[in-house]
Structure formats: structure tokens, C-alpha cells
Design a protein around this nucleic acid. Structure first.
Lengths: 193, 193
DNA sequence: CGTCTATTTGAATGTACTCAAAAGCGGTGG
DNA sequence: CCACCGCTTTTGAGTACATTCAAATAGACG
């Protein structure tokens, strides 16, 4: 299947799967088009699917008691996005997830992921490695927020996600690094001198 | 083995293992006594072992360019601690890990963990679940740092780790929630009114 | 072209930090 | 047993980084 080529390639970078296993895997998947600003998840819904981005770009975030958005993650093509809390507990999600650009995503529902683990146990390995890598990144992000200034966090962001810096509205970057859009704007003009 | 009882129990909460598998697992482990303030890892060393706490308490942290410590994690009994970056990449660690109290830890070196995955694949499942749970917690911590005030973060910390609040020096809690010890002290006295 | 949203700019404010000094607390040795 | 030492916590004054609110400007899209 054309539309599952990317996810198969992504999986194959960590584990070897036969054509048969790949066929079984893709039988558990579905694709979905998500329009700009369209939600695939709103806080309070149960959302237990893991979501792989074929193209476009999504983001996950919360909205605090003052109505301010705080972005947890961007998901450009080839990345996974979801709500771990909801996937693990089966309870309502704490996050919103929507599309920044028109996107195509691949969905792997929790029940199917569990079937996959039963039938093809090496997928346990794939998801273990995937989440261990994410974990290393998230731990670094916590430390960065604790120890770096806003300018330094922005510089790191630019190095880590050069493609995103070019295409994201800067209020999203401000939210991700943890400052207000106004302060971010002032900071940028100061940095360019 | 007495000293591996706790880790076996911990693993058994997520996967069923036979006596034989447990025996193989424990053959890959070693224990170590860590005295108060003693390091099991200093930044720049390669440290690829996963570390399970039998008793006592450890912490992982970085030291920034001004010499200030920033605590990433506390590891009371039953918790795992390590440096994901070093485990995954094999490169020098970015963290320090030392004992807050006299502790006994169980060490699982990376090579042994990989042997374990080969021989008893369901351990892939155990570690996947373990790290998915950690991931959910870490994502929440990022969002808390982005959206909550220092007071709110402290209140959450008290709810989540009541046992730690009672026994940790408060400068460690300050570091974990991301404020200076001086500010933390003032905040506490303000909150108690 | 007009509307809607994003970005910039400025002034006032607040949260948290730095530096300095004092007070508290626990362990150790005389 | 108490005096001293080192480390943690408290307190205060001054400061800095980042926020809020408001308004102006710039861009994007139908």
C-alpha cells in the first residue's frame, strides 16, 4: 500500500519484518486526512490510538485555566503523536491534538497495537526503542527549561528543528519554548542585533 | 536471591515470568551499595546500565554553566534511574547520579539487557511499559512547568510524592520544581498563612 | 479590498533571582 | 556535655527577566 510505505520504512529502521508481517501490520492501520486546524483529539475525549504522520504537521498542547495554549509537541512527517496518558490508562486525554497544516496521518488503535504485540512480538521492541528515544529528548527538554534562558532554548530549538523554525507561526515556537508571543518577538529583535 | 526479590516483584506486576526466566534474569544483575553523596555516574562518563533502587534514594541532575544543580529525577525504592541518552547512544552521559541516602541498587548493564531481550523477549514488553509510563509523567511535568506557577507545581509535587516531601532537603525540592532555594523558602512561608 | 489573525512596540507590573547576612540544625570532637 | 563547624534555611533589599495590557502595524486569505 502506497500510503503505508513511510510507516513501514520507519519501522524497518529498527526491526526486520517480513512481507507477511508487514501485511498484517498494515491491516491494523487506517489513514485519515486532517485539515488545517482540525482536531484529532480534544481534551476530555478518550483517545487511545497512536498516530503516525505521513505528511503535513500536527501539534499536541494543553489549554490552561487562563485560556493560554502550551505546546507539548510538534509532529512533522515521520513522527508519532498521541496522548500517552489516555493510551495507558484508557481515561480521557489531557491534551488537544490538531493539524497545523493539511495532513495525512496513520492511526493505530490501542486494541490493534495489542493484537500486533501478540502476533508479532518484535513490535514490542520497535515501540520500546521509539519511546526510549522520545524519553531521552523529553528529559533534555525538562533540563533545558530548568537551566537555560529563553534565548538559549530558542537557539537550541533552531538547531534541533531547522525545518520547523522556517514554517511555524512564531507564536507556536514561543509557546513550545515557554514564553509569551510578545516577549518572543522582543527577544528575536534583540538577538538579531 | 533475597536481594533480587523486589525487582522480580516489580517485573511480575507487568509480565508473567517462570522461575527459570527469573533465574536467568537475576544472573544478569548485580547489586551495589551506594553511600550518601556517592556518585554512581558523573557527567561525561559512559554509563549504560539501568539502575533499580532496592532501598535508599538517588537523584539524577545536571550542573549548569553557573554551577547550579538542576534535578531531573528522584529515585526512591522500586524506581529505575539511569541516563537514557548514554544508554541509547553509548556516548558520555549528560547527567550526574548520586545517592541522597545510603542506598542499595540493582544494576542491569546494557549488554545484559540486550541478552535478556534476545533470550526472554517479553522483557521488551516490560521495559516498553515501564518507559511509556515514565513518558506520560515526563510529558505532564513539561506541561506543568509551562503552565503552572511555582506554588502550583509545589502543591502537585506534595500530592504526587508525599513520602519524599517529608524526607528531602527542601533545596532539592526547589531544584526539582524549578526555583531557587531562597525563593522556595519565601514561597513556603507565604503559603502557610 | 476588507477582514482576521499574527507580529511588533511600549509602558507598567509582577514573579522570581541575586547577593548578603543572619539564624537554625546536626554531627563531631574535645 | 557542650562548643564549634559546615550546611541548610530564612530574611531582606535591590534587580532582572518575563508578563500583562493596550494599541499600532503587518501579513494572509477569501
Amino acid at each position: 500500500m502506497e500510503k503505508f510505505e513511510r510507516i513501514i520504512n520507519s519501522v524497518s529502521r529498527y526491526i526486520n519484518i517480513t512481507g507477511e508481517e508487514a501485511a498484517y501490520f498494515t491491516s491494523l492501520l487506517s489513514t485519515k486526512l486532517v485539515r488545517r486546524r482540525q482536531f484529532i483529539l480534544q481534551e476530555g475525549e478518550v483517545f487511545t490510538s497512536s498516530c503516525f504522520v505521513n505528511n503535513g504537521c500536527l501539534r499536541s498542547y494543553t489549554i490552561d485555566k487562563n485560556g493560554v495554549e502550551h505546546i507539548l509537541q510538534f509532529a512533522p512527517p515521520g513522527w508519532w503523536i498521541g496522548d500517552f496518558y489516555s493510551i495507558i490508562t484508557g481515561k480521557p486525554a489531557v491534551l488537544f491534538i490538531d493539524a497545523i497544516d493539511e495532513s495525512e496521518v496513520v492511526l493505530l488503535p490501542k486494541e490493534n497495537r495489542e493484537l500486533l504485540f501478540e502476533k508479532v512480538p518484535k513490535f514490542e521492541r520497535f515501540f520500546r526503542i521509539l519511546v526510549e528515544n522520545s524519553m531521552a529528548g523529553n528529559q533534555q527538554r525538562i533540563l533545558d527549561k530548568l537551566s537555560l534562558t529563553a534565548e538559549e532554548r530558542f537557539e537550541k530549538f533552531c538547531l534541533k528543528y531547522p525545518a520547523l523554525v522556517a514554517c511555524l507561526p512564531q507564536k507556536y515556537i514561543a509557546s513550545y519554548i515557554g514564553v509569551t508571543p510578545e516577549f518572543f518577538s522582543k527577544m528575536r529583535s534583540k538577538m538579531s542585533k
